[in-house]
Design a protein around this nucleic acid. Structure first.
Lengths: 218, 218
DNA sequence: CAATAAGCGGACCGGGCGGTCAACTTGCTA
DNA sequence: TAGCAAGTTGACCGCCCGGTCCGCTTATTG
């Protein structure tokens, strides 16, 4: 496609500064951190932001893309782990840990922004499905939960702790543990509602109506 | 205090319309629904909004106050229920059901707004603590969870489903059920982190440093 | 029914936002 | 080292927001 030639040295440096500053700023102030503040934090002019990212949404998308890819890489490695139950728990732990504040919620809201993000997210969802399938077959999680359930519950620990002021930075571990206990087979009660059929936006919204083959939602 | 004499008939009607419109609008568009849109939806002028509520925050606070009080009333009734475990589950069900969309999250974020809201919230938190204590004594929930845990987890089912597009309106029941299973004693694993000490803003931020006596956080 | 004050509405204001642009600076290359 | 494209910058634009204000309408009351 567009074979872009390498960035000038200062431009590359600014781009890195910008991404870091934006990640921090979004983490602290949420989606409505202002572009001006991000620029100030990065030590560049506001115009520079828009030279690198056409729109505020594109900047967000770039950050989100990184996170999703990183998370997916972890997940794919864990597919080979010896204990599938532990592997799933480890994945959820890394996912929650990765979002220092509550930024991973972007992961969900920012879906519409960028085609690359949607693709990356589908990839990650697919990995999660596999992790869950393995854990289920191994008896580590109850029979009636699906990958979609886990994807939805993934952000809950951080969401939940985001409301307690001055929370210890790893309080989320407590709630991840509680929720994960809810996913275990021991003492599970029948669920009152079926799982969402095509669980997430990126999957449902494919233009041609096809579905990723490997998903295999039961 | 200010012994306000009764509102004029039309004013009272507008106030009701306004509260209803605002509740809908906030539910659909979140915290940043605009005052102008709310006014339009209620069929009144923008000035009228500010005649009834000095600030957008006050309008929000009025809505939140209603919800909290309603929820608290349900909770207090459930304190006399025969089965404490079922009572707690019922309370959480009503809480999740009450928020058609995801509005109950206001309940948390809007804390700073109004002293009345803070008081009402403390009252409700206290009720939840009692419900949890009773359920725990009855063996319906595990020994290591506290009222604070339940308060934090209360909004999670709706949060979680808010990300699935065109979700069936009671999908949240599925996730409430999973999370509640995580609160049960059967198959519980030890938790990796202690509960938050003074869990919620309203409780922590008392001016004089005292604590509500009845709370009895372990 | 007349007088009055309570209530109403929408033009208006200041401010902050995302995004643009033209003048200026600077890293790259021949 | 000269020339130029790539990159930078902050003033600027239009928009929308929360909130104000004042002339108008209307429910209430004697």
């Amino acid at each position: 496609m567009t074979s872009t030639r390498p960035l000038r040295a200062d431009a590359a440096r600014n781009r890195r500064l910008l991404l870091a500053a934006a990640a921090d700023e979004f983490a602290e102030r949420g989606l409505d951190a202002s572009v001006a503040d991000i620029a100030r934090r990065a030590g560049v002019g506001k115009g520079t932001v828009f030279r690198h990212f056409a729109t505020k949404g594109d900047l967000l998308a770039a950050i989100v893309l990184d996170r999703i890819d990183a998370l997916n890489a972890v997940g794919e490695q864990l597919l080979d782990a010896a204990d599938p139950g532990l592997a799933l728990l480890e994945f959820l732990t890394v996912a929650a840990d990765q979002q220092q504040q509550r930024d991973l919620s972007f992961l969900q809201e920012a879906g519409e922004l960028n085609a690359d993000v949607i693709r990356a997210r589908e990839r990650m969802f697919c990995t999660v499905h596999k992790l869950v399938d393995r854990a289920r077959e191994h008896g580590a999680v109850r029979a009636d939960i699906t990958g979609a359930d886990v994807i939805l519950l993934m952000c809950a620990p951080n969401y939940v702790t985001s409301y307690v002021p001055d929370a210890p930075p790893d309080l989320w571990r407590r709630y991840l543990s509680i929720i994960f206990d809810g996913l275990r087979p021991q003492g599970a009660h029948p669920l009152p509602h079926p799982p969402p059929a095509a669980p997430l936006p990126g999957i449902d919204e494919r233009r041609d109506g096809t579905r990723p083959a490997e998903l295999g939602i039961t």
